[in-house]
Amino acid sequence: MGLSGLLVYINDLFVNHVFDLVFLVISFITVLSALGVVFFRNIVHSALSLVVTFLGVAALFITLEAEYLAFVQVLVYGGAVSVLIVFALMLIQRGTVKETNMFGRLAIPALFTAFAVFALLGWALWQKSWTAKVVPAPAAAGNAVFNLAEVMLSQYVFPFEIAAVLLLVAMIAAIVIGKEVKGTK
């Protein structure tokens, strides 16, 4: 054993288990930054930590061979949503931003609830072991988006249209609600 055995082990890890290693690193970063979102005391730090989480989830989508979703995740979450959040924070925060992200009175019950939910989900996972089907070879790069478009615009065309209407309604409502109201002050 000794050093050479360790080197052989590391070599084996890198040669045969690259995917596992990548998954572990990505999930470690994702969970760490998710914890940062909750436990940072400055709301701006929380928002930036959330961006790291979004990018980690995008990387997880790539490991799941959902490249299109990874792009959408980076564009919509990493780009639009995070910019929106940072802008809102700039409009809202007044004075110091220190200690703007504190826990309320219900932190302890919330911690118990979260642990209970995690235990329940973990127990359910333990009970039902999913047997994965034969994993196919990854499809050609152009194919995935084509398939997605075909399914979305034929089988799920009504949800697609409703989603478009929902986006329009949300946009108009956001403008109306966020508009400066004359005479309130």
């Binding site: 219900l106 932190a107 979260a114 973990g122």
Partner: peptide
């Protein structure tokens, strides 16, 4: 699924315990 459950629980904890609406 375990990773997803962990992320969900972290988010749930934050959503239930935070004071700031944006958080």
């Amino acid at each position: 699924l375990l990773l997803s459950a962990l992320l969900f629980s972290i988010g749930l904890f934050g959503a239930l315990s935070k004071k700031n609406a944006v958080a």
